[in-house]
Design a protein around this nucleic acid. Structure first.
Lengths: 175, 175
DNA sequence: AGTACCATGTAAGCCGTTACATGATTCT
DNA sequence: AGAATCATGTAACGGCTTACATGGTACT
């Protein structure tokens, strides 16, 4: 049940409305955790009922601003520091990479090429982000996280280039 | 709906029983896609009804061996080559990493240390796997995949070491 | 005979996505 | 006045996990 803690974490950074949280999920958490507004609003209601967050203001258009409570802060800390992390993940890209060797040479190459194009795109977007970041930066984005993204995508790019290279050899020639 | 294609992919490698597939998911697909037997058996039944797999043998203990059909093979290829990949992923570790900067120094350090221990563990397991791999290896494991895992975990290790180093500085000193 | 493991299935409940629905504010 | 965007909610459906349930085979 990570959604709850993702919301608590974002509210620990700053009080927000459900609408703002929805945007933050999409902007900053896209790569590790997603949530639509249809999930966020009910979760905020549950968190409020449990006393982990509270409404601290009403704005235009019936908007409600939520803030984390001391209880919520304690629960967030407990989850981050004491709870057994769930290391499992679910990503279709990893599955595809695992199955791609089953394809015949031409398809395999094409598939790797497509993945490479995507990785290059991610990479340039992240580098763009890094270069445009003020010294004391947009609190939305943490510099080390961006750096990690760049490095992982770099490794992926190199690996894909090697696979494409190998797929250029005659079928079965890689002993 | 990747479960279906994961099963097709594993059956493309070799005909298997549901029980064997369950084990393969746990051994080889653990890092990108998981599935329990309670999901696999019904999925095999659906795939058979759709003509994408077929029962090719009955073994001991009422076990059924499934194989992929030509239709199933075509569908697998279509998914791998033509379908729009779903790049989204869901991993709690990424979320934790994103929220860890919110913790106070001591907790932050401890959390990174715990992650580092886990990464080191993964890394040595993968290196073990690599060194124990025959030249024409266990078809269960593909060498390039192992190599990719090693590289990604290497990047993670270095990054964590840097974060731990930074968390050693007095609070707030990293401009 | 008892234990461990092989092997397959079903049911309840939670989580997440897509779609439906409504109202408020701003801009042109 | 109409369109776009802000803002919040609910409902239906499907996927996945946990738990329940059963029987077969091998080993000691």
């Amino acid at each position: 049940m990570s959604l709850r803690h993702a919301v608590l974490g974002l509210l620990e950074r700053r009080p927000s409305t459900g609408y703002e949280l929805t945007q933050t999920f999409d902007r900053s958490l896209r790569t590790s955790w997603q949530a639509r507004h249809s999930q966020i609003y009910p979760e905020l209601a549950k968190l409020e009922a449990a006393g982990l967050v509270e409404v601290v203001g009403h704005g235009a258009r019936r908007s409600k601003t939520y803030a984390i409570t001391p209880t919520g802060r304690a629960e967030l800390r407990r989850w981050l520091v004491e709870a057994q992390p769930d290391r499992s993940q679910r990503n279709e890209s990893g599955l595809r990479l695992f199955l791609t060797p089953l394809l015949e040479q031409a398809d395999r190459r094409a598939t790797y090429q497509r993945d490479l194009a995507h990785v290059e795109h991610e990479l340039s977007a992240l580098k763009e982000l890094r270069s445009g970041m003020a010294p004391a930066t947009d609190p939305e984005v943490f510099a080390p996280q961006v750096e990690l993204g760049i490095r992982i995508n770099g490794v992926l790019r190199d690996w894909l280039l090697e696979q494409i290279d190998r797929a250029g050899e005659p079928e079965g020639s890689h002993q």
